[in-house]
Write a protein that binds this DNA or RNA. Sequence first.
DNA 1: ATACATTAAATGTATATACATAATTTTGGA
DNA 2: TCCAAAATTATGTATATACATTTAATGTAT
Lengths: 149, 149
Amino acid sequence: MKLEEEIKQYHFQNEYQKLMINQLFTGKWISNIISKHLKEFGLTSQQYNVLRILRGQKENAISVNAISDRMIDKMSNVSRLIDKLKAKKLVQRKINKEDRRQVDIEITASGLELIKKIEAKEQNMFNQLSALNETEAKQLNELLDKLRG
Amino acid sequence: MKLEEEIKQYHFQNEYQKLMINQLFTGKWISNIISKHLKEFGLTSQQYNVLRILRGQKENAISVNAISDRMIDKMSNVSRLIDKLKAKKLVQRKINKEDRRQVDIEITASGLELIKKIEAKEQNMFNQLSALNETEAKQLNELLDKLRG
DNA sequence: ATACATTAAATGTATATACATAATTTTGGA
DNA sequence: TCCAAAATTATGTATATACATTTAATGTAT
């Protein structure tokens, strides 16, 4: 639905104001799609993001800071996010021997399994974006990158 | 900066996965710009959104539900949002006489003043989007609308 | 070697949010 | 008319988030 109908606002100061609002709205829209998808697996989108980052590191454990650097939403308290994942036995902590301030995090076998299960149903999620064809999706990606300068 | 650098992820399953991530990232980016701008005025972006909706209604008070319908982020508890605005004397509540379930909300004079102050500095915020020219901004708006179907 | 600054992670705390439930009023059908 | 369903707003509660502070380890300049 057009933004105007979604929020019942039919006039904007300029194209940039509309863009801000549209971007906020669409970000929230995507975020809801993802949250719903992850709900049946008991994960938040932040937690899933961390799990995927850890998997991307293969065998190498990675510091809390490095996780934060790679997150889509660079929130301040990755520590507590790790707590949650650890409680579910999806990750484990290891003190780094070279720098004992640093705590390295590693995904567990059951963490890897969970990601697989989630990915098996992921196509359903992508299908919700199919109003755009691939060329348009690419074009949108480029405009978003450019927007952020 | 390109998404790849921002989150240090250089491979995506497909253009749609990248789009989801890019959209989340950019939504958060905009949201931060707005929050920072509003911080000096002591408002959250949700509160500001409500104030602007109320101003848009001119003289007419408007129900809590109608506010929710018009919000960018259609959150469940507008009631408590109104509490906060009322505590700052930016809005007031009025029981509707035709339907006593309904509570109509009205912006106060000082609410209107505050919006004016905020808007006076708004151009600074739009300037942060100036990496896109107006044609591109329009194109982006169209793609976002189309994405949501 | 010591003092001071910096870094990494964790914690405290206030506020925000999601989601379920309640309280009140209105609506609409038997 | 009366009663169940729906609508509207408010509240309870658990969790998430933002932001400041703390703790511990390391780096650096003298």
